[in-house]
Design a protein around this nucleic acid. Sequence first.
DNA 1: GATGATCAAATTGTATACGATCTTGTGATC
DNA 2: GATCACAAGATCGTATACAATTTGATCATC
Lengths: 234, 234
Amino acid sequence: MTIAARPSEDPTDVSTQYIRDAIRDAIVDRRLAPGTKLSEADVGRLFNVSRTLVRGALQALSYEGLVNVEKNRGAFVAYPSPEEARQIFATRRLIEPGILREAAKNMGPSHFQHLRQLLMEEGRLMGERGQTARRAEIKASGDFHLMLASMTGNAVMQRFMDELVARSSLVIALYGQSAISSCGHQEHQDIVTSMERGDLDRACHLMLHHIDHIEKDLDMRENKGSDLKEAFRL
Amino acid sequence: MTIAARPSEDPTDVSTQYIRDAIRDAIVDRRLAPGTKLSEADVGRLFNVSRTLVRGALQALSYEGLVNVEKNRGAFVAYPSPEEARQIFATRRLIEPGILREAAKNMGPSHFQHLRQLLMEEGRLMGERGQTARRAEIKASGDFHLMLASMTGNAVMQRFMDELVARSSLVIALYGQSAISSCGHQEHQDIVTSMERGDLDRACHLMLHHIDHIEKDLDMRENKGSDLKEAFRL
DNA sequence: GATGATCAAATTGTATACGATCTTGTGATC
DNA sequence: GATCACAAGATCGTATACAATTTGATCATC
């Protein structure tokens, strides 16, 4: 198990929150494969912390849908079924156009500048090679959607999107075909451009297509027997 | 503190889940006032359970937004600010029309029958008098929205709605003016009728108005200083 | 009498201990 | 040799113990 503690962080003063974030990052960054067992004792040793804190972190992650806790068996990095994946994307299609409209109400030039800046970074990462750059790119791609959510000023929507984006990352990690996802960069730009022009209808339309594209790039045919999967991955 | 254990339940074999549900019910049913402190030891004594399990339950409720846990101070029944309330309803306006459309895809005659049955019950409770009937009515009103969510077959949406409905109950408990909310019964019926006719646009339209009505019936002028409120209620 | 410091009580934060459950490996039996 | 029973080990579930923090009261001081 390789849950890298953030550099320049003292491994003491570690709290539940810290562990939760570290594991979540590791999952979303695909450093922890779906199905991986997260033993309470092991994780505790990693962070020099008792099982009590680890349990808290795992419970929280379970609530976010990133981890499954099975009674008397332990916690595992979630292994979303194709059906779950469909539900996640269906929910995103339902929510994200609304987020766009809601965000647009509050957005001024500075907000657009922030978005553009994120897109620049995203584009830069696309050019680079290597696993690290790839992870950063995927993360940046999710951050785009999260930034839009944060611009609604609505904490509830923001939390929902947090969960949806994190779980989407897992799904993409599982069923993603290739680096095709990177073509999403252009779509992100188009969405921002439409918003800047005030053409919200088009922005929503593009957003829906964007989500469709992400979902279409998945290959979700495999192993329907949902529990067998874990055995193989483990 | 009066968190009634469900009748005919043995107070032994109580798990985190059970405690969580009991507290959630008590909050949503308004038997626990917003701001009430939920001391770990007290709750534990109530359920004959150690603080460990209580903490788990409180943490989960905190994630749902029904409880606020303040570091080193304890857990309190949430006291949503007017701003939070607005965000909750804004999110509902964003999500519920989509849920309607999503549910409509899967609904057959039996589903409509279930809905009608729920509405009958709701109507019956409206006629009755007393606090108990009132609570049951409010609960039934929320159940209508939850049942629609369940008919989407989408677990993610369902969970989001669970949270939104529960938090709405809290908000109504806090800022609700009178029993005007009961006029929502007719609106529920109209929504179902429109759906049955296949007029989804109208159903969505009615749903939006319905949510607006609920929000309009709130009086959220009071105490803006968000933290002071707790002090007074406590 | 009001204000501020200090100490005791209460409550939460975290670790550890112990019992319950599951997993797994061994060996007896067919 | 395959199958089943059983026991040892590992892991989780819950309770308890102790440390850290906050709260509230008492008392000294201005």
